[in-house]
Computed example of a mutant assay.
Amino acid sequence: MSQSNSLEKIGVGHPQAIAGLLQVVETTEDEETRREATYSLQKIGQGNLQAIAGLV
């Protein structure tokens, strides 16, 4: 199980999980890892302006 999937399981709207996923999206060079983090962020970051900004 990837770290992205683990963070997703923490729960919807959890600010530390969202921050961790945003960091992965912004810093990883591995496309598959970035894709998984983006997918997880879409699921748990709904309505979170920081998460939305990170996906745009």
Rank of each mutant, 00 (worst) to 15 (best):
G47E: 07
T33Q: 07
K9Y: 06
A37T: 03
I44T: 03
E31Y: 11
T38P: 01
Q46P: 00
H14V: 07
Q42W: 11
L22E: 03
H14Y: 13
G11S: 02
N5Y: 13
P15F: 05
N5Q: 14
E36T: 08
I44N: 00
T28W: 09
A37P: 03
A53L: 06
I44D: 00
R34S: 00
R35L: 00
Q23W: 14
L55A: 10
K9E: 13
L55Y: 12
R35N: 03
S4G: 00
V25G: 11
R34G: 01
N5I: 10
E8F: 01
G45N: 05
A37E: 03
S6D: 12
L7M: 10
T33C: 09
T38V: 05
T27S: 15
Q16A: 04
T27A: 15
Q3G: 08
A19I: 02
E36A: 08
V12W: 13
R35Q: 02
V24W: 09
Q46G: 01
M1K: 07
H14P: 04
N48T: 06
E26N: 15
I18T: 01
N5P: 08
G45V: 00
Y39P: 00
S6Q: 10
T27Q: 15
G45Q: 05
V24A: 07
E31H: 11
L7K: 07
E29Q: 14
V56G: 05
T33K: 14
L41W: 11
V12E: 15
I18N: 02
Q16V: 01
L49S: 05
A17L: 02
V12N: 15
N48L: 02
K43V: 15
E36I: 03
G20K: 07
A19E: 02
L49M: 08
R34Q: 06
S40C: 08
T33V: 12
L49I: 04
S40Y: 10
R35K: 10
E8G: 01
A37W: 01
S2D: 05
V56A: 08
K43P: 08
E26I: 10
N5L: 13
S6E: 14
R34E: 01
V56D: 06
R34F: 07
I18R: 03
N48R: 07
E26H: 14
V56S: 08
S40P: 08
T28Q: 07
S6R: 11
E8L: 07
S40H: 11
L21W: 13
